[in-house]
Design a protein around this nucleic acid. Sequence first.
DNA 1: AAGACGAAAGTGGTTGA
DNA 2: TCAACAACTTTCGTCTT
Length: 312
Amino acid sequence: MAAEYPYDEDRGEGGETKCKNIVTDPIRGLKICADTGEVIGEDIIGTESDVKAYTPEERQQKTHYGGPLKYSHHYMGVEASLEHPRDHGPKGLKQKKIMSRRLIRSSRPLTSMDKNLQTALSMINEVASRLGMPEIVVEDASKIYREAMEKGLTRGRSIESIVSASLYAASRLHGLPHSLTDIIKAMKGNVDAETRREVARSYRLLVRDLSIRIPVRRPENFVYTIANALALPESVAIEAIKIIDQARRKGLTAGKDPGGLAGAAVYLAALKQGIRKTQKEIAQVVGVTEVTIRNRYKEIAQALGIEEEVEK
DNA sequence: AAGACGAAAGTGGTTGA
DNA sequence: TCAACAACTTTCGTCTT
């Protein structure tokens, strides 16, 4: 019964290629060699890679949703109900026999579960599109939600909290950098401590009871997100990843927020190449404060001896 | 004026008895 | 279950560009 998720062994480093160090660029949906910047392959099937977006707003405008419809079968049942509202009631009975299973399902009144699922799925779609998430994440989130409902995990919990938790789990599954807070904000506009707590609890519940294997968050996976968001050249991203690698060898990374780590590495890498980005800008992209970026950056610069001659 | 820096106090999450 | 702990945040005063 445990769901099969395609990417739960994402952490395996050794790929089929000669490249040892593969990172993801979630925005473009690519796997990239960290050493050369060479594109190894598609991480996310069905994502339009012609979409180049550097800010969340832009991403929202440019990403074409509902593009290829091959995933729409995910909404089977529920969507059929929507398409054939007149089939409800006794009059449709005679036709039932010749109908496909799909239509048979649609010809009975909506159960409360159907309605629940319907709202949940459209919520998932809405929030995901606001955040510019790829279609595959919407699918996985939907799948997770369905399974949660089948296992009775939704009972007694708000739809919103399970939806947020499903979306978060799905995006973590694909190495996307969104935080729980991002997702809640995209759904409700604001985030208060209680809802955050509730969603976090739901998330842990889903992960445990559905046996979802969430890959470890790696700082490398944030690098291309930052570079894209701030329109930094690829050379900066490559350098940043090297910096992260060195920092790891020096034991500076354990227990540290990967976003902050990546942010500091990008900041340093940009500086080394004579590009000036403010700590604040970077901090906003990865969802930490300038202080965290600053602390990481100080530690790394000191340990790696990058402090001397950083800019001309 | 804006960015970078560092100190100090507060917050939420994790861990281990 | 609770207390200790590390990491992060918030806030703020000062220095630098």
